[in-house]
Design a protein around this nucleic acid. Structure first.
Length: 281
DNA sequence: CTGCGGTCCTGAAGGC
DNA sequence: TGCCTTCAGGACCGCA
């Protein structure tokens, strides 16, 4: 599922591929996915690409932007035209099939190639948003920003007795952390996912803050994670590599890499939650 | 305010 | 073999 590191990878890949180019046409094959009028976007130049939390923001000439939320299974695949100078990766066959696939819901016809939005579960969306409306998305601080401090975390944790893992995944409190990286960060910090947030000691909060940054940086370094059952791929069509480095996520029944104890799994807030009973207290 | 459960959707996996 | 049920999951919504 595209979380901060996956969306950051998509952002960096697309920056090299499509910034400075013009959107010539948009084919919307599933109306509910594309929210807005294609006419508001066609003919505009892509001025820049940013990320906010798990959302990709494609800034256009004029006063508009496209905001993309990939939710569980959204993908963006950039396929350069034949003969086009390939600026990023290479157009490898998409899952052994041709694009558009049956999961392709929006196709952007851009100078030099096509950008496909695919989404198996169809939970994701693309919205046309005015630039001055971008701050309407209620999101907490970015983990890599300077407001993301131990003091900030102490503040939000002290006000709730919810399990710490659910607080980490609350986008209005911390932007971009989802199920994978919440599980991984809690292992790295040695904290049980079920601990009430307000019960964390200052020393643990310090460790957790560093752990969040560490696992997100690792995720970006490996180009995101293409875990089993998950649809994330880079816009080049290649999978990410972070899944090979998971400490606990989707490793129930396997041995902890640090101590050999069997990794456990439980449902917390409807999400698969994984931890090592020895390393996390 | 909190916390719970339903909703969207599809494919894989399990049961009989 | 084949049909039916269950499950996973980010964000949001309604209800108690």
């Amino acid at each position: 599922m595209p979380e901060l590191p996956e969306v950051e990878t998509i952002k960096r890949t697309l920056q090299k591929a499509i910034v400075g180019k013009t959107i010539k046409n948009i084919e919307v094959r599933k109306a509910k996915i594309f929210q807005g009028e294609p006419q508001e976007v066609i003919g505009r130049k892509i001025e820049g690409i940013e990320r906010r939390g798990k959302m990709l923001i494609i800034k256009l000439s004029g006063d508009k932007a496209l905001v993309v939320h990939f939710k569980l299974t959204g993908q963006m695949v950039w396929v350069p035209e034949a003969g086009e100078q390939v600026t990023v990766g290479h157009p490898i066959p998409f899952a052994g099939t041709q694009l558009p696939a049956k999961t392709t819901h929006v196709i952007f016809d851009i100078d030099g190639g096509k950008l496909f939005y695919n989404d198996l579960r169809q939970f994701g969306w693309i919205k046309v948003v005015k630039l001055d409306q971008l701050d309407k998305f209620q999101l907490g601080p970015e983990p890599f920003d300077k407001e993301f401090t131990v003091e900030y975390l102490e503040g939000i944790f002290s006000r709730t007795s919810k399990p710490i893992k659910l607080v980490l995944m609350d986008q209005t409190k911390i932007a971009g952390v989802g199920n994978i990286y919440a599980n991984e960060a809690l292992f790295e910090a040695g904290i049980l996912p079920t601990r009430p947030a307000k019960k964390l000691r200052n020393e643990e909060i310090k460790k957790l803050k560093e752990a969040i940054i560490k696992v997100l940086e690792e995720g970006i370094k490996y180009g995101g994670s293409s875990a089993k059952d998950e649809a994330y791929i880079k816009p080049t069509g290649e999978p990410g590599g972070y899944q090979q480095h998971f400490r606990v996520y989707q490793r129930a029944g396997e041995k902890c890499r640090k101590c050999g104890t069997i990794i456990k799994r439980v449902n917390l807030g409807g999400r698969g939650t994984f931890w090592c009973p020895t390393c996390q207290k």
